[in-house]
Computed example of a mutant assay.
Amino acid sequence: MKMPHNAFKAALAKREPQYGIWAGFATGYASEIVAGLGYDWMLIDGEHAPNTVPSILSQLQAVMPYSTAPVVRAVTGDTVLIKQLLDIGVQTLMVPMVETAEQARVLVQAMRYPPHGVRGVGGGLTRATRWDAVPDYLNTAHEALCLIVQVESRLGVENVEAIAAVEGVDAVFIGPADLSTGLGHIGNPSHPEVQKQIRHAVDATLAAGKVCGILAPAEEDARRYMSWGCQFVAVGIDISLLRQAAKENLARYREPQETVTASRTY
């Protein structure tokens, strides 16, 4: 059989805007519902959602028939964990809190087989190879893999030019919540200093010829970041959307106890 097509990576290469949604329920059932809504991509969150390698696998299997492309965020850039995620069929991997070019180079190596990297060979044991049904997988796997590094700290922004320039890094994703917290503006990614650092990270990424993405559940934020050059933007979070819709529904019948607002900081 042919190597499974990475629609997300192909879309980035065309420089087309990609609207995404965060999937945080950590179940295949919920992820399949989200995958059928028409978003270009969805983030299966292994950092802040209660996901494990088996639960991520079940979600990849659940969303496979749909056009929404899965992106998986690892809890860490650990090489062994990355090996497991790639072996279960993750093709687009996001790694949080990347702060140096050297850290980015290590991640690139984790995505590739020797002599260009350190990824272990699972062969017929792995879903990625479709249990040895994909011809010449070892020599061609990197062509279908996409590495997204998250820049979300003061140090990361300081080093963003060097990070984005690393060969094998396909895209940089900015995390406004952690960045604002690290800059001393907890819960306020709209602070002018935070916005200045975000703009700098976007500009540096584009100058390196790479694609930039960001999380922006508030519409005005999303449109501003896209005008700056962000190509793939997560415009919603499934958990927040459920909570918001449920509270609005209840408020039709009962006086609301609090103002219903969408999350701006995650």
Rank of each mutant, 00 (worst) to 15 (best):
A10M: 04
A10T: 10
A13M: 08
P17W: 02
Q18D: 00
G20R: 12
G24K: 09
A26C: 14
G28P: 09
G28A: 11
A30V: 06
A30E: 11
E32V: 02
E32W: 01
I33N: 03
V34E: 03
A35D: 08
G36F: 00
M42A: 05
L43R: 11
D45N: 12
G46M: 09
E47H: 11
V53Q: 04
P54L: 00
S55K: 11
L57C: 05
Q59D: 06
A62I: 08
A62C: 04
V63D: 05
P65E: 10
P65K: 07
S67E: 15
A69R: 12
A69C: 05
V72C: 08
A74K: 07
V75F: 00
V75R: 14
V75W: 00
V75I: 12
G77Y: 10
D78R: 10
V80E: 11
L81F: 00
Q84N: 14
Q84M: 12
M97S: 09
E99P: 05
A101R: 09
A104E: 03
V106I: 13
L107M: 06
A110K: 08
P114M: 03
P114A: 08
P115N: 04
P115W: 01
V118Q: 11
R119T: 06
V121H: 11
R127L: 09
T129V: 03
T129E: 07
W131A: 05
P135R: 02
D136N: 15
D136E: 13
Y137F: 15
L138C: 02
N139S: 14
T140F: 00
T140E: 14
E143S: 12
E143C: 01
C146P: 11
I148L: 12
V151S: 02
L155K: 15
G156R: 11
E158N: 13
E161V: 14
E161I: 02
A162N: 11
A162Q: 15
A162I: 04
I163Q: 04
A164M: 05
E167A: 14
V172L: 09
G175K: 10
A177C: 08
I186H: 13
G187P: 12
N188L: 03
H191S: 03
P192W: 01
E193Q: 11
Q197N: 12
R199A: 14
H200L: 15
H200V: 09
A207T: 07
G209S: 06
K210P: 09
K210M: 03
K210T: 10
C212V: 15
G213Y: 01
A216H: 10
P217M: 06
P217N: 08
A218S: 07
E220C: 01
E220M: 06
D221E: 13
A222K: 10
A222G: 15
S227H: 04
Q231E: 13
F232A: 07
V235D: 06
R243W: 01
A246M: 14
L250M: 10
R252D: 01
E255A: 15
T259N: 07
V260W: 00
A262D: 06
A262R: 15
R264M: 03
R264Q: 10
Y266K: 12
